[in-house]
Design a protein around this nucleic acid. Structure first.
Length: 493
RNA sequence: GGCGUCUUGGCCGAGUGGCUAGGCAGUGGUCUGCAAAACCAUCUACAGCGGUUCGAAUCCGCUAGACGCCUCCA
C-alpha cells in the first residue's frame, strides 16, 4: 500500500489558473523539472526561495511514496544579458570581466550554489544536467523545429518564428498574453536585428569572433538560445510530455512560454501537465535589486554579515520562515519576520524534543488519526505548508499538555503522533532538529552545570546576591539560565 | 500604457458564502526568593464603495493602493 493511493493532491496550475487534481501520467511516478540557476554569480536569494519551495514539493511527493524523478538544470551557457536576444552571454561577460575561463566562472558559482543548498538542507535533485552538456540535443531540437517550419536561419543564427507558430498554436497561453498585444507593446528596437519580428526568440546564436564559448553547428559556430536548454533537457529525461514544471514567477514569460512553443513546434505536444510558479521574495517590502543595493546574498543572511538583519539566522529558521507562507504568495523578508519565525521554530522543536519523555496513558483525549489526516490534507491542498505548520503547533500544544498531565494518549496514538510529527517536520519540511536548551559543547555544558550547581547552593542558602550575580553574568556572556520544575537548564544565543 | 497577481487584526501570514487558522508581540494567570524561560488562557481583522444573496471578509462590478512581467538585476 502506497500512501499516495490514499491522498488526493490538488495543484494550482498556472496554465488553467485553477487548482486541479494531480494525476501523474504514470501511476506512482512523477516527473518534475525546475529551472535552475544561471551560474554567472552567487545564487540569488529569491532563486533559493523558489528552489526551497520545490524542494518541499519533492520531499512531500517522495514522502507519500511517489517515485519522483526531479530534474533541475544548471544554466552554464546561452543566457544572454537580456531577453531581446542581444548582448553578451552572461557567463562570457563575467569571464571577460574577471579575466578567467568561462568554465571557471561556471565552476565557481556552481560550487557556491551547491554549498548554499547543502547548508540549507536541500535534497539533491535526481538529475542536474547542464546546458553545455546537451549541445547536441539542442542542435537536434533546432533541426526539428526548422524542419517543421517554425524556425529560420539568418546570418548563422536561428530564430523561432513566433508569428508562424501562433497561426496554428496559442503563443501566450501560459502567461495569458496575446501576440497582438505583444506586438503593440514592443518597445522601439535599438540597432538592427536579424529577426523577422521582435517577438521571435533565438534558438541558436552565431558567436562573434572574440566570443570564447562556441560550438560547431550546421548554421555557425555559436551557442544555443537560453530557452532551448530547458526544452532539450526536460524532454530528454522526463519525456515529451511530463507531469510538473516549476520555476519562479519571473520565468513565466518569456522563458516558460517559449519552452511550450519549442516543444509544441518540435514534438507537436504540450510538454507539461502542471505548471507551478513560486512567487517572488522581497527584502523589507521592496524588490531585491542589485542596482539600488536592496539585496542580500544567501551566505550573508546565514552569517549575519549584512546591514539588513540584526543577527545570523540558521538554515532551519530560514526554511521555517519560508514554509510559514505559501509558495504562491509574495514573501517579504524582514528582521521582525525572521525573529518571529525563529522563536516559533524553537518552540516547535522543544515540543518535538519532549515527545520521547511522554508516558502513554490508558485513554486518548485527542483524536490523533484525524489530526494526522489534517496534516496530509494541508499538503494535499497545493502544498499548503502554513496550514501544516499550524497543525504541528497544535500537536506541540498537545505534547505540552500531556507533559503537564492535562491530556493523555494511548501508546498506539503516541506512536502515531511521534511518527507523524517527525515525518512532516524533518522529512517534508526539511527542518533539522535543534534545541535552545543544552546547546553548548560538552566542555561548556560541564562548566555551566557547575555554575548552575553553585547558584543552586547559593539559593538554598538564600544568598540571592550571589545567585543573581551568577545568573546575570552568564546572561551577559550570552548564556541564558532556564529554571524549570525539574531543575535548571541553559541555552546560548 | 498592456497583461497578470494581490490588498486580512500591533506585525507576519492561512482560509472559508453562515461556525477557532497559526506564529510573533500584548494582556491575565501558573511556576519562581525575584526575574527570565516555559506552560495555560485571552483581546484587536478581513482596503473603500456599490451589487448578487436569507446571509459576504469569502461571488460580481467599480475605485484606490501594492507587486510582478513586458525593459540589466531571480
Amino acid at each position: 500500500m502506497q500512501l499516495y493511493q490514499d491522498q488526493t493532491i490538488q495543484i494550482y496550475n498556472s496554465l488553467s489558473g485553477k487548482k486541479e487534481v494531480f494525476k501523474p501520467i504514470e501511476t506512482g511516478y512523477v516527473g518534475m523539472y525546475v529551472c535552475g540557476p544561471t551560474v554567472y554569480s552567487n545564487v540569488h536569494l529569491g532563486n533559493v526561495r523558489t528552489f526551497m519551495s520545490f524542494d518541499m514539493v519533492f520531499r512531500y511527493l517522495k514522502h507519500i511514496d511517489f517515485k519522483v524523478r526531479y530534474v533541475r538544470n544548471i544554466t552554464d551557457a546561452g543566457h544572454l544579458e537580456n531577453d531581446a536576444d542581444e548582448g553578451e552571454d552572461k557567463i562570457t561577460k563575467k569571464a571577460r570581466l574577471e579575466q578567467i575561463e568561462p568554465m571557471e566562472v561556471v565552476q565557481r558559482y556552481t560550487v557556491d550554489f551547491h554549498n548554499i543548498l547543502n547548508t540549507l538542507n536541500f535534497l539533491p535533485p535526481s538529475i542536474e544536467p547542464t546546458a553545455t552538456g546537451h549541445i547536441i540535443e539542442q542542435i537536434e531540437l533546432i533541426k526539428t523545429i526548422i524542419d517543421n517550419g517554425f524556425g529560420y536561419e539568418v546570418n548563422g543564427s536561428v530564430y523561432f518564428d513566433v508569428h508562424k507558430f501562433d497561426e496554428s498554436n496559442d503563443y501566450g497561453k501560459l502567461s495569458k498574453r496575446k501576440l497582438e498585444d505583444l506586438i503593440h507593446n514592443t518597445r522601439a528596437l535599438e540597432g538592427q536585428s536579424d529577426k523577422k519580428n521582435p517577438q521571435d526568440f533565438a534558438l541558436w546564436k552565431k558567436a562573434e569572433p572574440q566570443h570564447i564559448m562556441r560550438w560547431p553547428s550546421p548554421w555557425s559556430d555559436g551557442f544555443p538560445g537560453w530557452h532551448l536548454e530547458c526544452t532539450a533537457m526536460s524532454t530528454k529525461y522526463l519525456g515529451d510530455n511530463f507531469d510538473i514544471h516549476g520555476g519562479g514567477m519571473d520565468l513565466k514569460f518569456p522563458h516558460h512560454e517559449c519552452e511550450i512553443a519549442q516543444s509544441e513546434a518540435a514534438k507537436g505536444i504540450s510538454p507539461v501537465n502542471y505548471w507551478m510558479h513560486a512567487n517572488m521574495l522581497q527584502l523589507n517590502g521592496q524588490r531585491m535589486s542589485k542596482t539600488t543595493g536592496n539585496t542580500v546574498n544567501p551566505d550573508e543572511l546565514l552569517s549575519g554579515n549584512n546591514k539588513f538583519f540584526s543577527k545570523a539566522y540558521g538554515p532551519s529558521v530560514i526554511r521555517f520562515f519560508n514554509a510559514q507562507s505559501s509558495y504562491r504568495s509574495v514573501l517579504d523578508l524582514t528582521d521582525d519576520g525572521l525573529l518571529a519565525s525563529e522563536k516559533g521554530f524553537y518552540r516547535l522543536m522543544d515540543a518535538i524534543n519532549g515527545l520521547d519523555d511522554l508516558k502513554a496513558g490508558t485513554t486518548s483525549t485527542f483524536n490523533v488519526s484525524e489530526w494526522k489526516q489534517k496534516c496530509y490534507d494541508a499538503m494535499n491542498d497545493d502544498f499548503n505548508s502554513p496550514i501544516l505548520i499550524a497543525h504541528l503547533f497544535e500537536a506541540g500544544k498537545l505534547i505540552n499538555q500531556i507533559k503537564d498531565n492535562n491530556a493523555s494518549l494511548t501508546s498506539e496514538d503516541l506512536e502515531v503522533l511521534t511518527q507523524t510529527m517527525n515525518a512532516f517536520t524533518f522529512d517534508v519540511l526539511g527542518l533539522e532538529n535543534a534545541s535552545k536548551s543544552d546547546s553548548g559543547t560538552d566542555k561548556l555544558s560541564g562548566a555551566v552545570d557547575l555554575l548552575i550547581q553553585l547558584r543552586q547552593d547559593a539559593r538554598a542558602n538564600k544568598d540571592f546576591a550571589l545567585s543573581d550575580k551568577i545568573r546575570d553574568e552568564l546572561a551577559a556572556k550570552g548564556i541564558q539560565l532556564n529554571d524549570g520544575k525539574d531543575g535548571t537548564t541553559f541555552s546560548t544565543n
